[in-house]
Design a protein around this nucleic acid. Structure first.
Lengths: 131, 131
DNA sequence: CGAACACTTGCACAGACGTTCAATCAAGAT
DNA sequence: ATCTTGATTGAACGTCTGTGCAAGTGTTCG
């Protein structure tokens, strides 16, 4: 049984260990696991999964580097995938809350959201050899 | 041709627009695209892809909630996947630089890295209805 | 109107990914 | 030494997903 392992571990780790100690630790750990099941989990995973793709990541990086919203036709040529793929990527990013969308005439403008900026900053701040 | 679209866009957007303006804008945009192709890109994508999985995300959340390193047997029972899957997940997370690993006797301890903490913080700080 | 344009959406397929089973390894315990 | 325990590794299978093609939407221009 899987729970036996935890029991043995607690017994081996704690010098003085009674069954109550095992149960207390189990409840504590269960609390940590509950934290990982918060309702924000599904949303977080969606955001991460969306950004974890080469095309979508590059789009966000470009828009972040630009510092302002850009028209699709301004960055699509640099992505080396079809127009269709770009559009799919933009739709996913917008749904995930990583991009904002604005329509003007026949052009569509996209810009990064606060959430996208925060994630990229976290990556940059903790990159290998980050200053 | 794809570049024509950008040309037309610049022409339509700028009031006074000469061919040189189009070229300048193209170079500027090309610079943004180059930013997205930095060497850190592969690493960033690896990190994001690794965290963008339910099992791996929950592991990191649990270790983050614990605030200290935990033995595998302490959190594996809460993940509702096989031991093997947990181990694969831990290997991926460690390779991606999201977890630290320590060996002691026959137990292995895992804890979150600064990078993992930074990413979760970015998610929490920008969640819907964040404080 | 109809044509051109900027972009989006549905569909189908090839490649990638997570899981499990089984075998394996490292380190006590007997 | 041999067995058990905690954990890792490899292979195979089923599922998910990013892409391109083709068709469709909405907007402007002649």
């Amino acid at each position: 049984m899987a729970s036996n392992r935890l029991e043995r571990f607690v017994a081996a780790t704690d010098d003085e260990c009674c069954p109550a100690d095992v149960e207390e630790r189990r409840r504590e750990l269960s609390g940590f696991a509950a934290t990982a099941d918060e309702r924000s989990r599904a949303r977080d995973l969606d955001v991460l999964r969306t950004l974890a793709d080469d095309t979508r990541y590059r789009i966000v990086r470009i828009l972040e580097a630009a510092g302002e919203e850009l028209c699709v036709c301004e960055f699509a040529p640099f992505l080396s995938v079809s127009e269709s793929a770009v559009s799919h990527a933009l739709g996913d990013l917008t749904t995930a809350g990583l991009l904002d969308r604005r329509k003007e005439g026949r052009w569509r403008y996209y810009g990064t959201t606060e959430r996208a900026t925060a994630l990229l900053s976290a990556l940059d701040a903790t990159a290998e050899g980050a200053r």
